[in-house]
């Protein structure tokens, strides 16, 4: 899975450079996020600008990351969701679990 890790204003930003998250790559995503947290980075913003499709396993991977971050007193937030990706979070009420920002500026301003 094509992922890029960046630092932005003291936040760990994870860019997902894939159009699609499904059961083929969601395991990699989950493992990557959990590794980031285990390496001492429990505050993460996942930027989903490129993602046009997410299935239940993709939502599950992000939820696993969220729970892991929370357990380590951190926070996993999301930004730049495409409308149809956002609708998946609404359908599962996961939009009430995650903090979802329009863009990275908004995410890093709100989190600091």
């Amino acid at each position: 899975m094509n992922l890029t890790q960046q630092q932005l204003d003291g936040f760990n930003v994870l860019l997902i450079n894939e159009e699609r998250i499904d059961a083929h790559n969601s395991g990699d995503l989950k493992a990557f996020i959990i590794d980031m947290i285990e390496e001492g980075e429990p505050n993460i913003v996942v930027q989903l600008q490129q993602v046009k499709f997410i299935d239940s396993s993709g939502l599950g991977a992000l939820l696993a990351g969220f729970k892991h971050a929370t357990a380590k007193s951190g926070k996993l937030a999301l930004s730049n969701l495409q409308p149809q990706v956002l609708s998946m979070f609404e359908l599962t009420r996961l939009n009430r679990v995650f903090e979802i920002y329009n863009n990275l500026d908004e995410a890093t301003t709100s989190e600091s």
Binding site: D55, S56, L59, A61, L63, T92
Partner: peptide, 19 residues
């Protein structure tokens, strides 16, 4: 049906199809 107040990582696939 998934428990929306205590969301789990798995078990949403069939829910999507049914919904």
């Amino acid at each position: 049906i998934p428990d929306f107040d205590n969301p789990k990582e798995n078990g949403m696939g069939i829910y999507f199809i049914k919904t």
